[in-house]
């Protein structure tokens, strides 16, 4: 039971912390974000395993995490509200070449991030070539070019 509780608590706390961190943290856009996620995985490993390094404990932990993932997937499918709370929603951050500054500040996104995404996805050079820029749930920025 201890293993199941540890895995569940760590999973839940990480879920909350990553929602608090905002969408961009999950996008791994910078080396810092990538290193952060690596270190978090190392830090939580010991919290879940504890002093029990047996195969049984490891398999219990994996099973618990997979089970939680399946449970949440099912809940998200059945209840739209749960999906919104857990995953968030896409956010429009630029419209017809004009950045929505307030929203970008709240999500800690700047114009350079939008231009990076525009160049990578569509080879665009300027903001006025962008019809919409959307900050997706996974932290990536998707670009809809102007006609």
């Amino acid at each position: 039971m201890d293993s199941v509780i540890r895995a569940t608590v760590v999973y839940a706390v990480l879920l909350v912390l990553f929602r608090l961190a905002g969408k961009r943290t999950l996008a791994e856009v910078t080396t810092f974000d990538f290193v952060l996620l690596l270190i978090i995985s190392e830090a939580t490993q010991q919290a879940m395993v504890g002093s029990d390094n047996s195969m049984t404990n490891s398999l219990l932990l994996v099973g618990t995490l997979v089970g939680l993932n399946i449970l949440l997937s099912e809940l998200k499918l059945r209840f739209a509200g749960i999906e919104r709370v857990l995953d968030g929603m896409p956010l429009l951050i630029l419209e017809h070449g004009k950045p929505l500054v307030d929203r970008m500040a709240k999500e800690r996104v700047d114009v350079d991030d939008v231009l990076d995404a525009a160049r990578e996805s569509h080879g665009l050079e300027r903001l006025d070539q962008i019809k919409y820029a959307v900050l997706e749930r996974d932290g990536k920025i998707s670009i809809i070019p102007s006609d």
Binding site: L77, R78, A80, L91
Partner: peptide
């Protein structure tokens, strides 16, 4: 609650 599949068919209403 009835299972919903492909529930987002229309564009996202950002406003």
């Amino acid at each position: 609650m009835k299972r919903q599949r492909n529930k987002r068919r229309e564009p996202v209403d950002f406003a």
